[in-house]
Simulated assay, not measured.
Amino acid sequence: MLRRSVLGAIAGLLLIGGAGMAMGKTLIYASAMSGQLVDGSGRPAAGVTITRTWQTSSKTGSDSTTTDDDGRFAFGSVEQRSLFGGLNPGTPLIDQQFTHDMTGTPKMFLRMSKRSFGPNSELDGRPINLVCRADTDPEPGPGPILSSTCRILD
């Protein structure tokens, strides 16, 4: 009898846990994006390491990729599944910085913010596709793009 009660309790917890995970929410800390890094003459910057760093008030992370022969690069989204993520009453502020190592020293070429955990909320739902210059210093950008050497492609 005790064994049946214990097995029943475990099965109940698994069902509740499974339902809870189905009710959970995926939080996107950084959306997927693609781009191209070019030099001062507009030529592709091939073989350059690009690092994306993101930070909230409680979490931080980074990932890197390398440009291909055409200077193109891509990052996947940074996601976390959260059981109670949809219940958070606050608005997140996620700071993202992108650097390249073309000169041997990391140089920032893009900084943008994200104020929701939704996909592509950096650009109000539009996919992020950029062309960025490696040779200039970032200038203030519009809206969530705080500073950049990039232009947005449609």
Rank of each mutant, 00 (worst) to 15 (best):
R4H: 10
R4T: 12
V6A: 09
V6F: 02
L7M: 13
G8P: 02
I10T: 11
A11S: 14
A11L: 10
L13G: 15
L13P: 09
L13R: 07
L15E: 06
I16Q: 08
I16W: 08
G20M: 05
G20V: 00
M21W: 13
M21H: 12
A22G: 10
A22E: 13
A22M: 15
K25C: 00
T26Q: 10
T26K: 07
T26C: 02
Y29F: 10
A30T: 01
S31T: 12
A32K: 11
M33G: 06
M33S: 15
M33N: 11
S34A: 13
G35D: 02
D39V: 03
D39M: 07
G40N: 09
S41F: 00
G42M: 03
P44V: 10
A46K: 13
A46D: 07
A46W: 06
G47D: 11
G47E: 09
T49E: 12
I50L: 12
I50Y: 04
T51Q: 09
T51P: 00
T53K: 12
W54H: 14
W54F: 15
S58L: 01
S58P: 04
S58Y: 04
K59H: 10
S62C: 01
D63Q: 14
S64A: 15
S64F: 03
T66A: 09
T66M: 07
D68C: 09
D69H: 14
G71Q: 04
G71Y: 05
R72G: 03
F73P: 01
A74M: 06
E79K: 14
E79A: 11
R81G: 08
N88Q: 10
P89C: 02
P89L: 09
P89E: 10
G90A: 09
T91V: 13
P92R: 11
L93E: 12
L93A: 13
I94E: 00
I94M: 07
I94N: 02
D95W: 06
F98I: 00
H100M: 04
D101A: 10
D101H: 10
T103N: 07
T103W: 04
T105R: 10
K107E: 08
K107R: 14
M108L: 11
M108N: 07
M108T: 14
F109P: 05
S113A: 09
K114P: 04
K114A: 04
R115G: 12
G118A: 14
P119F: 07
N120Q: 12
S121G: 12
S121T: 15
S121I: 01
G125P: 11
R126Q: 14
R126A: 15
P127K: 11
I128S: 13
N129E: 09
V131T: 10
V131H: 06
V131N: 11
R133H: 12
A134T: 15
D135N: 13
T136S: 11
D137N: 14
D137C: 05
E139A: 15
P140C: 06
P140F: 04
G143E: 11
G143A: 15
G143W: 06
S147P: 01
C150F: 04
C150W: 01
R151T: 07
R151E: 08
R151C: 00
I152A: 12
L153H: 06
D154N: 13
